[in-house]
Design a protein around this nucleic acid. Structure first.
Length: 350
DNA sequence: AACACGGGGGC
DNA sequence: GCCCCAGTGTT
């Protein structure tokens, strides 16, 4: 039978991961949030740093948002970090540090959707609820030869029902982890290991040699192109201007150098004409384009072309906006910045 | 129902 | 260059 085979496979092949040792709600929750749309290999070092820094949900709740975002820097999908922090405060203050102990109440937490609520409820509290993540979609669509697109409304319903039917009710937490681990390590998107598969004899995709065509997924979204011109101000004392991204957009609440977004990347003449204020022109010493060709930075829905302009001035403006800060060059590392910015900063220092 | 939201890695 | 990753929230 399927569930039993998957559980046996898991026993022999599972990775040794820190949150699996002794399932506790705080650690399982933390790991599940971090692993949303994120590979274990990428999330693991972040998990270890968070646990080290915030051993309990109270420690996380009491930290500043700045610190949480700084530790999250580079992991992407930053709303996860903000929701994580909000939820930590709710659990710490309103619930006395105790997480809800069932699917229905877990799902009410910010950043906890169907998948994460199912994962915590089953792994920590042994509630028989099935997880459906990218791995489960792949394993089940292949095993049963289901061609319904996994990102259609019908597909979401169908696969949740199928996953629920296959759930090993006596050990839902172990089974959920087992089918995900099996999908991640064995029934992989590319080059699945069908030859050594424990359930190959009942797998439709294997029988019909179509594992490569499953799961079916609806189209791909279009990517928007954007053109960023960063102004890297620096005065004679090595002080720089930094501003927080507050608008509802990518990288919300992260820091950046003052940015001019335009329909195309600006030329030096255009920068001088439109980007610099009169009082900035008066104290301007030099302005140099740092990268000859725009840097391409690709996000899931956007392609960004970035140019960094190094602007040396005698002094920084004194009346700055409340989203801006004047910082020393050495202090830059304290701020959470997009990876695009981090790469620029590192190359300047190294 | 469709879209926005990051960054890294495999092939 | 394209696809995928222990998905969620908003419109």
């Amino acid at each position: 039978m399927f569930s039993k085979s998957i559980l046996n496979w898991y026993n022999e092949n599972k990775r040794d991961l820190p949150w699996r040792n002794k399932p506790e709600a705080y650690f399982v929750w933390l790991s599940e949030i971090m692993l949303q749309q994120t590979r274990v290999a990428q999330g693991l070092p972040y998990y270890l740093r968070f646990v080290e820094e915030f051993p309990t949900v109270h420690d996380l709740a009491e930290a500043s948002q700045e610190k949480v975002l700084k530790l999250w820097q580079g992991l992407g999908y930053y709303s996860r970090a903000r929701n994580l922090h909000d939820t930590a405060k709710v659990v710490s203050v309103n619930f006395g540090g105790i997480f809800p102990n069932n699917y229905k109440d877990l799902k009410k937490l910010k950043g906890v959707g169907d998948y994460t609520a199912s994962a915590i409820a089953s792994i920590v509290y042994h509630e028989p609820v099935a997880v459906v993540d990218g791995n489960v979609y792949r394993v089940l669509s292949r095993f049963f030869g289901v061609e319904t697109p996994i990102n259609s409304t019908e597909g979401v319903k169908q696969f949740k029902a199928l996953a629920t039917k296959m759930l090993a009710e006596k050990s839902p937490g172990l089974y959920n982890q087992a089918i995900m681990e099996f999908g991640a390590l064995h029934c992989k998107p590319k080059n699945p290991q069908c030859v050594t598969c424990p359930v190959q004899s009942n797998c439709i995709a294997f029988q019909q040699n179509k594992a490569g065509e499953l799961p079916v997924k609806l189209k791909k979204q279009k990517v928007r192109e954007r053109f960023f011109n960063f102004l890297v101000f620096q005065d004679v004392k090595g002080q720089m201007l930094l501003q927080k991204r507050v608008e509802k957009d990518i990288w919300q609440h992260l820091y950046q150098f003052p940015l001019i977004e335009s329909k195309h990347n600006l030329t030096l003449a255009e920068i001088k004409k439109t980007a610099l204020l009169d009082n900035e022109k008066k104290v301007l010493q030099s302005i140099k384009r740092w990268n000859e060709n725009p840097i391409k930075h690709v996000l899931s829905h956007q392609k960004i072309w970035a140019i960094f302009w190094c602007v040396e001035v005698k002094k920084l403006p004194e009346n700055i906006q409340n989203t801006q800060q004047i910082v020393n060059k050495q202090e830059l590392v304290k701020f959470a910045v997009p990876v695009l910015m981090e790469k620029f900063i590192n190359s300047k220092n190294g």
